[in-house]
């Protein structure tokens, strides 16, 4: 197949249980910009079951065309089925560029589609552009984000990439936008892998090593203010409370909640250290956290040398402010 036959920028719009994932809508904005440079259209692929309410949404966010598959077999995400469907769509519509939001589903789905189509794929892009030859420039941060690599797929089509969520701004929803909506039927054979159960993330106590957000406290925190921690915790899915060694030694928390060399090693997305000075034994247990934030009265605390965001101040003032802001964020949705 010559690459000239491939045209248009396509975005896979991911929906879960009837809710379109914001990360894929964010990509529509970026797709728009690329399409303008290439003087082509933006299209969206949408897969699911009973999608009527959703099909226009991609148009509102900037798509010119929505191609959707509405099939009972597609009610829940199944990597095998979704891949088969998307491959059929790609074969039919031949996109020049095919972007997928880098959610967990997206990061799983995209490479299997690329492998099936034997085309190139770039993961977790944080920026896109078009080079002088009209190739998609895929910019991504390997080596733990220390560098930015510029990648192209010169020969194979479609040019596929996943994009890191929340990097691109969400385009404005414009209900007056019009576009074409196409319903596609695709063949879905019985998968050899099936989802048998789904458990929504519960708010019950999660072991600290499994938590995605850890609110951790040390000796600089008075347990009389424990309610602050709990309130804070409630804002995050899969969050939990942990602590440093002196707290456990003083018998205030069970050993299972201790982060550090002699406690547990944790790798949450967010590690919020409150009143923790940051002894090396402690850092050793949380050094691989994705985002480390710290609240501490002491500006010289070691933790401030090893965090992404540090707030110098009394937690008694900072946490209530934080809670207030988080409430504001939550209100619209």
């Amino acid at each position: 197949m010559s690459k000239e036959k491939f045209e248009g920028v396509y975005v896979y719009i991911e929906q879960r249980k009837g809710v379109i994932q914001e990360a894929s809508l964010q990509l529509l904005g970026e797709a728009r910009k690329l399409a303008e440079k290439l003087k082509t259209e933006v299209s969206a692929f949408l897969i699911g079951y009973q999608l009527k309410k959703l099909v226009k949404e991609p148009i509102y966010y900037g798509a010119d065309k929505v191609i959707y598959v509405d099939n009972k077999e597609c009610a829940n995400y199944n990597p095998e089925i979704y891949k088969t469907v998307l491959v059929q769509l790609v074969m039919k519509y031949k996109p020049e560029i095919f972007l997928i939001a880098g959610t967990k589903y997206g990061r799983e789905l995209a490479p299997s589609i690329a492998a099936d189509l034997e085309t190139g794929i770039t993961a977790d892009c944080t920026a896109f552009d078009i080079d002088e030859k009209g190739n998609l420039l895929q910019i991504r941060p390997p080596f733990g984000g220390r560098v930015h690599a510029y990648i192209i797929t010169p020969e194979k089509r479609p040019q596929m990439a996943t994009a890191r969520p929340n990097v691109f701004p969400l385009p404005e929803r414009n209900v007056s936008r019009k576009g074409e909506i196409i319903k596609e039927e695709t063949e879905v054979s019985k998968p050899s892998m099936a989802l048998i159960k789904f458990e929504k993330g519960s708010e019950a106590e999660i072991p600290i090593e499994k938590a995605e957000v850890l609110i951790s406290f040390g000796r600089g925190f008075n347990l009389e203010d424990a309610h602050l921690l709990e309130e804070l915790c409630d804002f995050f899915l899969k969050s939990s409370i942990s602590c440093s060694r002196p707290i456990v030694d003083a018998g205030l928390m069970p050993r299972s909640r201790q982060v550090g060399q002699t406690g547990k090693t944790v790798r949450p997305k967010l590690y919020l250290a409150i009143g923790i000075s940051g002894a090396i034994q402690h850092l050793a247990g949380m050094k691989d956290s994705k985002f480390i934030a710290a609240i501490n009265k002491d500006p010289n605390a070691e933790i401030f040398k090893f965090c992404d965001f540090g707030i110098i101040g009394d937690y008694k003032e900072v946490i209530p402010l934080l809670i207030e802001e988080l409430k504001k964020k939550q209100a619209p949705s």
């Binding site: 060399q261 002699t262 090693t265 090396i280 050793a284 050094k287």
Partner: peptide, 17 residues
């Protein structure tokens, strides 16, 4: 017990830094 020896094996120090 512990991860110190694994750390030494991999990064030549017990902290794993």
């Amino acid at each position: 017990p512990g991860s110190a020896l694994f750390n030494i094996l991999v990064r030549d120090n017990p902290y794993g830094l």
